[in-house]
């Protein structure tokens, strides 16, 4: 029973301090789940993000489902998922009920502009950490650069990048290596 509570409360905490989308949650996941609880590795986190971008639903939620499932199966997945969304339910409920003009208060706008700067730095740090586990040779370095530039400048679906990179990975690791052995 304790592990379910731990899953819920850990994901609740992360949901409460994530401002923005799933990317803003990445540095917090690295801190809480990879370094803190040891529930998954940085490699697995990049896998979850890749899958999260190609599957329906919200990336932060998908990642919670993945980690919950890995720890405690279907029940763990459900507990972790509702943990990460529960703060939104409470906070948005209060705002919708009491502070209809919440987003137009000057202090909220100013504070959030500052938060965005902090989130920018946090994402930068998170990417540097992920680079260490995902870019392991020349080929993966090329894939990283090509996808980062293409995704920034072109309006293409992330699904396309993940599919091409996956095919390239299979070609490099299984087919070419297999051919070399023969």
């Amino acid at each position: 029973m304790k592990i379910y509570w731990e899953l819920f409360i850990t994901f609740f905490r992360m949901g409460a301090i994530t401002f923005g989308g799933g990317y803003a949650m990445l540095p917090i996941l690295q801190r809480e789940v990879v370094d803190g609880k040891g529930w998954c590795t940085n490699e697995e986190l990049t896998d979850y993000y890749a899958i999260g971008q190609c599957t329906p639903g919200i990336i932060a939620v998908n990642t919670a489902t993945f980690i919950g499932f890995k720890q405690k199966g279907v029940a763990g997945a459900i507990v972790a998922t509702y943990g990460v969304v529960a703060p939104s339910f409470i906070v948005i409920g209060v705002i919708a009920a009491l502070l209809q003009n919440f987003a137009s208060y000057a202090i909220v706008q100013n504070a959030f502009a500052g938060i965005r700067v902090a989130v920018t730095v946090l994402i930068l740090n998170a990417v540097v950490k992920l680079l260490k586990s995902s870019v392991v040779d020349k080929l993966t370095a090329c894939v990283f650069l090509a996808v980062a530039l293409a995704a920034f400048f072109l309006d293409l679906s992330p699904v396309l990048f993940v599919l091409i990179a996956g095919a390239l990975g299979i070609a490099a690791k299984v087919l070419w290596k297999g051919a070399a052995k023969k």
């Binding site: 990317y23 992920l130 080929l139 996808v147 995704a151 996956g166 690791k173």
Partner: peptide, 11 residues
Amino acid sequence: YGIRPASTGLI
């Protein structure tokens, strides 16, 4: 192996 750097690139 191929998807990981792509995922990092998207992020």
